[in-house]
Design a binder for these strands. Structure first.
Lengths: 276, 276
DNA sequence: TATTTTGTGATTACTAGAGTGACAACGCGC
DNA sequence: GCGCGTTGTCACTCTAGTAATCACAAAATA
């Protein structure tokens, strides 16, 4: 990655972390030249000179810049590690405060939290789906059936959760769409049986116009299901993960997948034909 | 803390973490009632009903909310821990990416980074000052002289840094403004000598109109100095920490404090009169 | 002293987001 | 089937926070 894109990325990240455009640009400029006057910063950052002062003042109050009150004033950026740690601890603090604030909220009345077991919920975005996957894996007590349709979801965290589940006595069965992925998984999870599914539609849709790709298929304790797929977003070309999950033994979606598994067609080597 | 202020705090924190007002309010409402329709969310959050949909969609893409595509649609918030962990990991990831992006920046030319040793830099804001203090403590090789003027700066992290310095053979001398603070410090740092300074102006200014309060005074290896004070901000009533620091044996500010110490007036019990 | 540089403030222009309303599709009670 | 409230989507206005420019006094430099 060349320095130009680094610069753009750094500016964008700083803005996502709460800085304004001028503040981000000024800080990056100062980090590059270590110290400089308002004029110099303006030249290497495209920030109007007269606005550099405001931006620097904000950066100073955040502990990212120090000032030498000479004439002209000279500004200096703190070290990269110091800056990043400052920002990071700021956000860790905020999230922890948030946790306790949310926990202290009083529930509204008329909120009958009856455990409904026939609902199907949809999730969008890889983050949420990954998080929900891990939560389901952590809650498994008897059996985990996971089909990995795309290697991009095979993260360290996922492997760890599977390992943990196995260690506490949960049956772990992993399936894949093709032999290439199977090999990779078997490598990081030697203690787990990894199968290649013979279901054709897992690896590619029978409809030519369908460009979606199965991402994962998870059945936990035969009573909770999560399915997700990558869909080619029409607006921007970024791939977007989308999924559904349901809970409850009598949940329609759960029933379908359970049935699918019971027919013995999900895996070439039927992992459990001793079912009553 | 009552639930009303919790609610307000949660909304504000969520906004600081990048959510828009409607998104934050909708999420807090959903967290309180666990699940609900757009109408219900609107009622408990003061977000216009028609805009709840937009807000939820964003929350969904961030993995904070799941949707049941029934009619009417029902929305559900993920658990508090799941939400907080999602947000936290998002920011940790951003800061780490930022670290590498900043490290990869190419320095501008004409940037003669000659170690100037006679500059005095100013810092504002408790965060930056604390961070700089710790950095100086970590870099100490021979001697640390720290005067604590206000107990609010006596954090666990500070104590830890002092302990570490002592463990690696650095002389650590701590002074305080009055006996009350001295006791507290001696308690958490039993292995360090803690003195009460006899300098009157440390604890209160000789000028009646001066409401500032000395916060800390740090001399590291007799060549780097950091002084900070609390100043009553005139605009808002929040107390604001402000400081200066300088580096270099021949730095004016450093020289003054070194001299001050050498006169033997900084501490009642002169810690080191064997100086050549 | 003339001229450039530096810092502050005011002013304008622009845009993202807050706030409102129109409306078609749908479900529900009758 | 028919009215009527509900639901979801759009399009729109209004506003506040930022970006962007300019005017100018104080200070430095030549």
């Amino acid at each position: 990655m060349d320095d130009v894109s680094n610069q753009g990325q750094a500016i964008e990240l700083l803005q996502q972390l709460g800085l304004k455009e001028y503040e981000a640009k000024s800080f990056v400029a100062l980090t590059r030249r270590h110290h400089g006057t308002a004029k110099e910063i303006s030249e290497t950052s495209d920030v109007p000179r007269t606005r550099v002062y405001d931006a620097i003042r904000v950066l100073e109050s955040k502990g990212l810049v120090v000032t030498q009150h000479s004439n002209p004033q000279v500004f200096r950026a703190v070290t990269i590690d110091e800056a990043v740690n400052t920002l990071q601890s700021e956000y860790v603090e905020r999230t922890e405060t948030l946790r306790s604030a949310l926990s202290g909220l009083e529930p509204t009345d008329g909120d009958d939290e009856t455990e409904v077991t026939h609902e199907v919920w949809s999730i969008t975005g890889g983050n949420g789906i990954t998080s929900r996957t891990q939560q389901l894996l952590e809650g498994a007590t008897d059996e985990i059936l996971l089909v990995i349709g795309h290697e991009s979801i095979l993260t360290d965290a996922l492997v760890e959760r599977l390992q943990e589940a196995r260690d506490r006595g949960v049956d772990v069965v992993v399936g894949t769409a093709d032999e290439a992925i199977r090999g990779k998984i078997q490598q990081v999870l030697p203690a787990v049986e990894v199968f290649v599914s013979e279901l054709e539609w897992l690896s590619r849709s029978p409809l030519p116009s369908d460009t979606t790709e199965i991402s994962r298929l998870l059945l936990v304790d035969r009573e909770a299901i999560l399915v997700s797929s990558f869909t080619e977003s029409s607006t921007d070309s970024r791939e977007h993960e989308q999924g559904v999950f349901g809970r409850g033994f009598d949940n329609g979606l759960v029933a379908i997948v359970r049935r699918l598994m019971a027919t013995g067609s999900l895996f070439k080597d039927e992992p459990r034909n001793s079912e009553p």
